[in-house]
């Protein structure tokens, strides 16, 4: 798939996932340590936010690993959906943590407990902002060069992680200026972000379990795209259904064919379509082609 100009770009593209994991682990350790040492609730909450990010990535990797397993007798359709179950379980845990962060942060403000973080906490947040930005730049560049819109989209999405670190910077500086409620307030903001993130993850997983069509593939767009791919063949695609099995896209393509063709010809058309369509997909795809005779001639004789 890597139709890139330079070999280096291909390596870069392959490394995005690893960089993301290593970067996240580094940020968690850094923020966790500085948060505890510097006594900043906000920064610790931010470290937990990074943990949630890392967990999301891990869930994705689990999805790839599990769905890569062979189908067997007991699970003839493979393990594709296991990923979503794992995601939901992890999210349940994160909900509890986020709720605790919110509760404790609010109580700290209400009770007026003094949380006066040390300035090192600011450095933790600033480093985290920088690392996040670098990771974003790399993913964006690699995604653009490798012509992978999904990676570009993901890069933009993960850029919003930076907001929590920015909130922490404000919280710590505010506390240093004498507004002692600012640090717990930043923690509450981060807690809300974790909540939102969890909610999105849960929603996505739940909908995927219900075989919702993936966001990037609306039915009409797919129909158009596939039809242009097979213009030179004298057939028409009637319908496309798609669902996600973990990392794999599972297509079911319904094709209208003249009812006079032989079975052999039909199989040839199937193969052709499968090759063309699957070859154009960015993600790993499984294609099932079903043939339907033209409707006006297909009326089954009574």
């Amino acid at each position: 798939m890597a139709n890139v100009k330079y070999k280096a770009c291909d390596n870069c593209f392959q490394a995005v996932g690893k960089v993301n994991i290593v970067g996240n682990i580094f940020m968690i350790v850094l923020k966790g340590f500085l948060g505890v040492v510097g006594g900043s609730k906000g920064l610790i909450a931010d470290a937990i936010h990074s943990c949630a990010d890392l967990l999301a990535t891990i869930v994705m990797i689990i999805g790839i690993k599990i769905s890569g397993q062979e189908k067997n007798e007991r699970y003839p359709y493979g393990y594709g959906k296991a990923e979503h179950i794992v995601a939901i379980v992890i999210c349940l845990f994160l909900y509890v943590i986020a709720a605790y962060i919110l509760y404790d942060g609010v109580m700290t403000i209400v009770e007026g407990r003094m949380v006066i973080p040390c300035t090192v906490a600011v450095w933790g947040a600033v480093f985290s902002i920088l690392i996040n930005e670098l990771m974003f730049r790399q993913a964006l560049c690699a995604g653009t060069k490798a012509n992978s819109p999904s990676m570009v989209a993901k890069a933009w999405e993960s850029r919003t992680d930076v907001y929590s670190s920015i909130a922490v910077v404000f919280g710590v500086i505010g506390a240093k200026m004498g507004f002692h409620f600012m640090d717990p307030l930043a923690a509450v903001v981060v807690g809300l972000m974790i909540f939102r993130m969890c909610f999105e993850m849960t929603q996505e997983a739940a909908l995927a379990l219900l075989d919702k069509a993936p966001e990037e593939a609306s039915r009409v767009a797919l129909l158009d795209r596939f039809n242009t791919l097979i213009e030179d063949i004298a057939v028409e695609i009637r319908d496309v259904k798609v669902r996600e099995l973990g990392a794999i896209l599972d297509f079911v393509v319904e094709v209208k064919v003249p009812d006079c063709i032989t079975v052999q010809e039909g199989e040839k058309i199937k193969q052709l379509i499968a090759e063309r369509v699957a070859g154009q997909q960015e993600r790993e795809s499984v294609l099932t082609v079903r043939l339907y005779p033209f409707e006006n001639q297909a009326a089954v004789p009574a």
Binding site: V36, I48, C51, A187
Partner: peptide, 8 residues
């Protein structure tokens, strides 16, 4: 981390 958070 959550435990630490509570402690701070």
């Amino acid at each position: 981390l959550a435990v630490m958070y509570g402690w701070v």
